[in-house]
Each structure stands twice: as C-alpha cells, then as structure tokens.
C-alpha cells in the first residue's frame, strides 16, 4: 500500500478532529483580523497601537510609528502577515512556518501591552488579565499545534507529503 505512511497516524480520530478544529479556528481568527484591517475605511494603521505601547520594548515599537514610510511598511506587513498566516492555518498549507510566524506576531502584540498592573495602559481592554492574556494563550495554542501538527492529515499539506512520500518510494 503506497499511502501507508500518510494513513498510519499516531493520532486517534478524535485527536485529529481536535487538532484540526483548533487549527481552523486560529486560522479563521488571523484571516479575519487581517481582512478587517485591509478593508478598514480610510486605511488601517498601527500608529496608535505603537505610540501607546508600554513595556520594556515600547521604545522600539514607538520608534516604528515615527517615520511615515516605516509605519507604512509595518502596517502592510501586519495586514498581509495576518492574512497569509490565517490562510495557511485555515487550509493547512505550509502550516509549520506559518505557526512560527503566527507565534512571533502574537508575541509582538503581547510585549507591546504586557498584562501587568505596573504599566498604565491607555488602550481599553475587556476582561481581567495578569501576565496571562488572550495573546499568550493563542501563542500557547499555536505551540501545541506546532508540536502536534495536523495539516499533513487534514490540510493541503497532505498532498505535499503524499508527493514527497511517493517520489521517495520511487527513488527507493
């Protein structure tokens, strides 16, 4: 049987479902965030987010908002980053690098506004958080997905893997 390597999963069916479900949800979230910014009337900008940022790295983030060209690059990188990462996770294509990129992006959001009472945050937030906030949880969820991938079973990565496996077989 040619497809033994693909078929022979170390996950149970329910585990595959759970991992796929989580991957699609996070993909959906990234994609929608990116598209909302893309379609924002008058153009979306991270200017306020950056200029009001707090925490140990805020001086870097604040500096990004000073120069118009730099800010434009940051804005576009963020919008397209969100859209591409979202699509990658949603469809399960090149999922591994996109999970790493997703974690990196979320980490930037996390350090810009650390959930510590020590920092006076002028941007309103719902809920109550101390160190752990939704960004950190989403980072952790992506880390789980990174450790337990599902795109090679329930994503387009399955076909890349299939062709890789089959060509390997031919070479064997």
């Amino acid at each position: 049987m040619e497809n033994n390597h693909i078929e022979k999963s170390e996950y149970s069916n329910i585990q595959v479902f759970a991992l796929t479900f989580l991957r699609i949800l996070i993909g959906w979230h990234f994609l929608y965030e990116g598209l909302v910014k893309f379609y924002a009337p008058g153009g979306w900008t991270a200017e306020l987010f950056l200029t009001h940022s707090v925490g140990p790295f805020s001086f870097i983030l604040k500096a990004l908002a000073v120069n118009h060209t730099v800010l434009m690059i940051v804005d576009n990188a963020n919008i397209w980053g969100l859209i591409i990462i979202g699509l990658g996770l949603f469809l399960g294509v090149f999922a591994k690098p996109f999970k790493i990129m997703g974690m990196a992006l979320l980490f930037l959001y996390f350090v810009a506004y650390p959930s510590l009472a020590f920092y006076k945050v002028s941007v309103p937030v719902e809920g109550s958080y101390w160190i752990v906030n939704k960004n950190l949880i989403e980072i952790a969820a992506l880390f789980v997905l990174y450790c337990f991938p599902s795109s090679h079973i329930t994503g387009l990565d399955r076909y890349f893997r299939y062709y890789r496996e089959s060509s390997k077989r031919k070479l064997d």
Binding site: T20, W28, L31, Y32, F90, L91, T154, G155, L156, R158
Partner: peptide
C-alpha cells in the same frame, strides 16, 4: 478528500 476538510468552512468564510 481528507486534506480538504477546511474547504467548506473556507467557502462559508
């Protein structure tokens, strides 16, 4: 079809 499970959701999206 297993690799395409996300497609119906993507369609709706």
């Amino acid at each position: 079809l297993k690799g395409l499970v996300a497609l119906p959701f993507m369609g709706y999206f």
